[in-house]
Design a protein around this nucleic acid. Structure first.
Length: 232
DNA sequence: TATGAGATTGGCT
DNA sequence: GCCAATCTCATAG
């Protein structure tokens, strides 16, 4: 089948049928303050990749599954920005990385090491390939569903690490290209703006551009991945 | 068509 | 702490 890599991406995932959106938290959401699962507006997202990576710390990733909503607070991200040799977009647009070139706030999902799915949020402006890897979340809603998705395990390990996170939220290629700024199968939400201190370190598991401080994490969070020396 | 490397994980020493 | 598993994609031939 003829397929033009440069053709506009009309996100197949976006038109895919989504499970019913979750009902707002029981009771009057108005009186209890803003809905923590309300989607982020794209205009709130910083355009620049590292700024977006930092911004996303403390925000929420939410996943609608047939069994219910699963969500968690983002506690660790990494930026793969413009001209970054460690980024998947460094060598230009390909079939695999095309979602990185979408407008900011879209999902780039890929499979690695024969075992793990990775969730990224596209950054920068349309046509520019850049993204933020979501490396870990603190489980919030649907913990029992996460346990089923992951097999039994300690709460702390359910979504500590990008592959585990994707497994816990049942993320795979079917979500690649999805708009994360609208309530659907997967989206980014405001969360409850809990206080946190953000640490910076080098990125994990890469060989190129390995000394750049483009990893961001919540200090003192037990749900952060990576060696202890990077999480000081 | 073949091959090498990869934004990881889990099991074993 | 070390290392194999396992598969997809990009690149070379």
């Amino acid at each position: 089948m003829a397929r033009s890599p440069a053709s506009p991406i009309t996100s197949a995932a976006r038109s895919r049928e989504a499970p019913d959106p979750p009902a707002p938290a029981s009771g009057g959401a108005g009186r209890d303050g803003p809905d923590p699962l309300a989607p982020l507006d794209r205009s709130e997202l910083p355009v620049e990749t590292a700024a977006l990576a930092r911004f996303l710390i403390g925000k929420v990733v939410a996943r609608a599954l047939p069994e219910g909503v699963v969500s968690g607070r983002i506690v660790e991200t990494e930026a793969y920005g413009v001209g970054d040799a460690a980024g998947h977009a460094f060598s230009g647009l390909t079939e695999r990385n095309r979602s990185l070139f979408l407008e900011r706030g879209h999902a780039y999902v890929y499979f690695i090491y024969g075992r793990s799915w990775m969730l990224n949020v596209s950054a920068e402006t349309p046509g520019i390939g850049a993204g933020v890897l979501i490396r870990a979340i603190e489980p919030r809603d649907g913990v029992s569903i996460m346990r089923l998705n992951r097999g039994t395990g300690p709460l702390r390990d359910l979504a500590r690490g990008p592959g585990r996170l994707a497994a816990a939220l049942r993320i795979d290629r079917s979500l690649d290209g999805l708009d994360l700024c609208r309530r659907g199968p997967l989206w980014l939400a405001r969360g409850d703006a809990a206080a946190h201190e953000i640490g910076e370190s080098v990125r994990i598991g890469i060989s190129r551009e390995a000394d750049r401080l483009l990893r961001f994490y919540v200090r003192d969070s037990p749900y952060v991945s990576g060696p202890r020396r990077l999480n000081a």
